[in-house]
Amino acid sequence: MTLLEFARGPAMEWSLIILVAGVVLRFAGIFLLTRHKTYFRTKGGSTLAAGLRTIGTRSAPTPDLEHRVRFSHYTGYLWHIGLFITVLFYAPHILFFESILGFGWPALPTSVVLAAAAVTLAVLIALLIRRMVHPVLKTISGFDDYASWFVTTLPLVTGLVAFGHLGADFGWRYETLLAVHILSVELLFVYFPFGKLFHPFSIWFTRYMIGGQMEQRGVRA
């Protein structure tokens, strides 16, 4: 079995199993924990409406505080959008999703995807450096932060290398580069449910909850 066969075969199947089972496990384990009842007279309006609203409003910092977090906020959006374009709108990637989901969508031209990937990589590197030097970030960061960075950035790097056939000078062949790229994505899948990368699943619920909790006291979250 070659590396590419391994990557496209058993590694892919198992990484997806771990991804799916891990996410569901963590979800069930969190949300089936106990809940404490609230007895005070609530003050605001509908907590449902407030919760749903907060899912949207937390997408941007509240205007009064925006100037304090401008850099994190905008760079965060920049690399997330770049990553989404790369992941979701590159033709070969769409085929992968289509094989699992059963439907596809139009791709963007390769040049656009390439530019997005390059920008994303640049921002991620800048953010890593920032994480290592910023007084807050370097204090609160641990293994998970760096591991998450690594498994997110690696597929981007291996993807760009495979795309550009870089590494041919070192005798690395395309199928090896492609295999490494696929394996790096599978590493991401496997790590996904276990660290902070889980946040795209939980964010909607936590935002919803803080919106409701604050609304009960008549405060806009």
Partner: peptide, 27 residues
């Protein structure tokens, strides 16, 4: 004192550091 909503919140921190930027003691 832990419960499901608090657990979900503690599980969700991405260590972005924004909370420090608005805390008067960090500021």
């Amino acid at each position: 004192k832990m419960d499901a909503p608090k657990a979900a919140m503690l599980e969700s921190c991405i260590h972005c550091g924004m909370c420090a930027e608005v805390c008067h003691f960090y500021m």
